[in-house]
Design a binder for these strands. Structure first.
Length: 411
DNA sequence: TCTGGGGTCCTAGGACCC
DNA sequence: TCTGGGGTCCTAGGACCC
């Protein structure tokens, strides 16, 4: 029998903003951007939620609901910094920690009674430690599975601790909406409603064969979840067994849709460079590159290409995403462009297609580029046409002696 | 309501191989 | 000439999460 904690920070982004500007406290605050921008709500304070504002809601809608709300852009670096602080505390509490996102984590504290006391006492202790070190509130769910611990922390919000005793899982879950099950979104909820299933208890009362015939593999997992079990997929994994990133991506939505080829190419190059830079930073090479294109009507296509040899070099990404773009763009105004790198390989070093000497020079040049970007911002250095037409004047800012792979690179 | 950006996982079909 | 049954890789799309 395991003892799992799910720690979830309360209104995380908003709470961090309040640390830097205490005058925001108690007011309706919306993190995500200005209300006249394209975008959605990243986080809303509890005061803002009273007006019906919630995350993922378009900013314009939030503005209509509460025009006097305070809209802030949000500083992601700050949130990451505080996320690290929280992680350090959790890690000091139990070695089996897994950050599930920037503001939530699972801990396996099975057998830690001698160290931290019984579950409820341990949870309160951890709650105090987090509060003490960060001045931030969180909620903690305690249960025998990740699934129940997670639903539990949600029920405990805000700033609460809730423990579901072993064997009480199904009784705790039964009266809750099926939507509370992680993985059940709008679509699955509607499908379940269509079968007359509204509460988790309704789900628990059905037999597995029925659910499997209706929802396939997912139906089988749902049957287990209704009983409070970590059935299927990610939930089954041991805490702390996470094996690193599976993909790295960047995307950009234009303030206004554009069909200007130079603009689109510049964005594409920029996004490719950002992805390549992060590949190098994290020591990955990618074999699959994917382009994402979204048009005015929100219709979205993705087109992928898998390389013979994995890469982490700007010009490789730029070349391939550009090719994908030109063979798939229909010429109509574009709302969003995205670049994704997947099929990641840890492969030590090897830059394929280059001999040892050139490889070394490339590596030095590219890490110099990354250092400059760190110091002067990602816009300061560019290898290709990432600068909206004005790149020629900037090319000399690139590190000297960039060995070109073909006549196109370099200046 | 006019819909961000960063991710994960799943499905389904086709190519290809034995 | 009317055709099996894996297994794996690749691609595209979609549901979902924070």
């Amino acid at each position: 029998m395991k003892t799992i904690f799910h720690v979830d920070m309360d209104a995380f982004f908003v709470s961090v903003e309040e640390l830097f500007d205490p005058s925001l406290k108690g007011k309706p605050v919306v993190v995500g951007g200005r209300p006249d921008q394209r975008g959605v709500v990243s986080a809303a304070s509890y005061a803002a939620r009273k007006f019906g504002i919630h995350s993922a809601m378009p900013l314009r809608t939030a503005y209509k609901l509460c025009p006097h709300a305070i809209f802030v852009e949000g500083r992601r670096e700050r949130y990451i910094e505080y996320s690290h602080k929280v992680f350090d505390i959790l890690n000091s509490f139990s070695p089996l920690v897994e950050m599930a996102s920037i503001d939530e984590a699972y801990l396996d504290v099975t057998g830690a009674e001698r160290l931290h006391g019984p579950p409820m006492q341990a949870a309160h202790k951890l709650h105090e430690m987090i509060r003490g070190a960060t001045k931030l509130n969180c909620s903690i769910g305690v249960a025998t599975s990740r699934l129940v611990a997670k639903i539990c922390s949600d029920q405990a919000k805000p700033n609460g601790v809730l423990w579901i005793l072993p064997s009480m899982e199904a009784r705790f879950l039964a009266p809750l909406d099926v939507r509370k099950i992680p993985g059940v979104g709008k679509v699955t909820e509607q499908a379940l409603h269509a079968c007359g299933i509204h509460k988790i208890g309704d789900l628990a009362a059905l037999d597995e064969p029925f659910l499997e015939s209706r929802f396939g593999k997912w139906g089988l997992a749902l049957a287990g979840k209704a009983q409070g079990l970590d059935a299927g997929g990610w939930f089954d994994a041991e805490i702390g067994a996470g094996d690193g990133a599976k993909s790295i991506s960047h995307e950009h939505t234009y303030l206004e849709d554009t069909a200007e080829p130079a603009t689109l190419e510049a964005t594409l190059a920029k996004l490719s460079e950002m992805v390549a830079s992060r590949l190098r930073e994290s020591g990955f090479h990618a074999r699959t590159l994917q382009l994402k294109l979204r048009y005015k009507d929100f219709s979205t296509i993705t087109r992928a290409h898998t390389l013979d040899h994995a890469t982490q070099i700007d010009i490789d990404l730029i070349e391939h995403t550009r090719k994908l773009f030109h063979t798939n763009w229909n010429g109509k105004p574009v709302r969003l462009l995205g670049v994704n790198a997947s099929n990641l390989e840890r492969a030590e070093g090897q830059l394929p297609l280059l001999d040892g000497d050139r490889q070394e020079r490339w590596k030095k040049a590219l890490s110099a580029v990354d250092r400059m970007r760190d110091r002067f911002g990602s816009g300061s250095v560019s290898l290709a046409s990432a600068m909206d037409g004005g790149f020629r004047e900037r090319v000399h800012e690139s590190p000297a002696n960039l060995p070109g792979r073909n006549s196109k690179s370099g200046s």
